[in-house]
Amino acid sequence: MTVGEWVRNTSVYRSVIRHGIAPTNRNRSLIIFENLFLHVHPVKVREKTLRFTHTFWLGGITLATTIILVATGILLMFYYHPSVPQAYRDMKELQYVVDNGVFLRNLHRWAAHLMVFSAFLHMLRVFYHRAYRPPRQFNWVVGVVLLLLTLLLSYTGYLLPWDQLAFWGVSVGTNMAKQAPLVGERVRFFLLGGNIVSENALLRFYVLHCVVLPVALLLLISVHIWRVRKDGGVQGPPDDERRTP
């Protein structure tokens, strides 16, 4: 009996994972629907949808980057103070003092870029495969909101290092909001907590970036993935209905 088999036969393990370990289809089904996270999947999937060209895994890559971003983001928060000029000093500390600090910051940054990129490509894939058509209309709208949230998350995170890049990127961006008729000026004032990009703005962006937007994103991702299942599962390219001349 191997160690793994012994562990899986203990009463503690069996209290957590109830199904047996024999490789039967019944146990394989139980793996899926006795697990809170896996049961967004059906027990069986259409073989066609496993093909790479059906999804290019773009939605999955976006979700994977989200998981990486949450993990690295929480770790970075342990060393970050949203205040001026401590925020910038924390960047230097992460870079030169904290073990693996620079690795985590880099990982967070590049994962954020990849998330924007793959979310955009995912949208294009869904469009060109016409997977937005009924009954998936609402899920398309959820997806557009998710893309918007992704951009906002990336943008609010852009200010947090409080370097020149961050400050002027956000100054230019929030001045764009000012151009909106009637409400633009007020929106900018509320967003920045003042008339200029200052410590208030840093704190507001921090709260948005670390609490408000991630919670909204995770909730909507849940809706999005659940709707994929409810609307009939992953859909690849449409059956060829194009007529030739």
Partner: peptide, 11 residues
Amino acid sequence: ERYVMTFPHLI
């Protein structure tokens, strides 16, 4: 259409 078990094929 052919269907396959989600575990292990998809997972």
